Amino acid sequence: MAYEQLDLDAQLCFPLHAATRAVTRAYSALLAESGLTYTQYLVMLALWKDLEPLSIGELGIRLRLDSGTLTPLLKRLEAAGHLHRVRSAADERRVLISLTEQGIALRETVADVPERMAAAVGLDERRAAELRGLLAEVMESLDRVG
């Protein structure tokens, strides 16, 4: 092959892309009962962490999503009764996101999802932690590149 550097099997991007699609597909099946999409689940995970309101900006930073992507997600979660969006009294430019009682209770419905996903992935805790660490390094490196 004249351009060996262009061999699909030699690329880092392809297994990342294929794994991302497979993970999203697996989460979709695991989340079907809850009514959450995979991306909505990520939003809920961020909000469940401390159960404290977060601004759209804070949530976007945490999830690595821009407000144009995040706003429609939040609107659907609000329409489903899982959260409230309220303008900050201190700064009306900020929109604060807080969970409803229904949104907090939804944790129970999905509490077994991480364990079921870990079983589906098939990595022991040590290898899963290594993979998370490697992926965090990749994200940090790419953040520096721009």
Rank of each mutant, 00 (worst) to 15 (best):
T109A: 06
A29V: 15
E137W: 02
L8R: 14
P53G: 00
T39E: 14
D124P: 00
S67K: 13
M44N: 03
D143N: 12
L54W: 06
E140F: 09
A2H: 11
A79C: 05
L134G: 14
L135T: 12
A18Q: 11
A79G: 09
S55C: 05
A10C: 12
A105R: 14
S34W: 09
S88K: 07
P114E: 06
L77I: 00
L65H: 02
T37F: 05
A111D: 10
L65Y: 01
S141F: 11
V95F: 04
V110Y: 03
L54Y: 09
G133A: 12
L131S: 12
A19H: 07
R87N: 11
Y38L: 05
G81N: 08
D50R: 14
T37H: 12
L73F: 01
V145L: 15
E101G: 08
R21C: 12
R25I: 01
A129N: 05
V121R: 03
E33Y: 00
L135M: 15
L74D: 01
H84T: 09
S88H: 11
L96G: 02
K49Y: 10
M1V: 06
D143S: 15
L77W: 11
L12R: 10
G133Y: 07
E52S: 11
G68P: 01
R87C: 08
V23A: 12
V43W: 02
C13R: 14
P114I: 06
L142Y: 10
T69K: 15
Y38R: 15
Y41T: 00
S34G: 07
T100C: 00
W48L: 06
T69W: 00
A119I: 02
L42T: 07
R25Q: 12
T37D: 00
S98N: 06
A26C: 14
E125F: 04
S34Y: 09
R132V: 14
P72K: 01
A19E: 09
G103V: 07
P72Y: 02
L8M: 09
E58D: 10
Y3P: 01
G133L: 10
V23I: 15
L59V: 06
V113R: 05
L123R: 03
P53F: 08
M44S: 03
F14A: 12
L77E: 14
L70I: 00
D91C: 04
R127N: 05
A79F: 06
H82Q: 13
G68C: 02
G81H: 11
R107M: 14
C13Y: 11
L16Y: 09
G103M: 04
E108K: 15
S88N: 13
R21E: 13
R127L: 14
T109K: 15
S55H: 03
H82T: 02
H17K: 11
L47A: 09
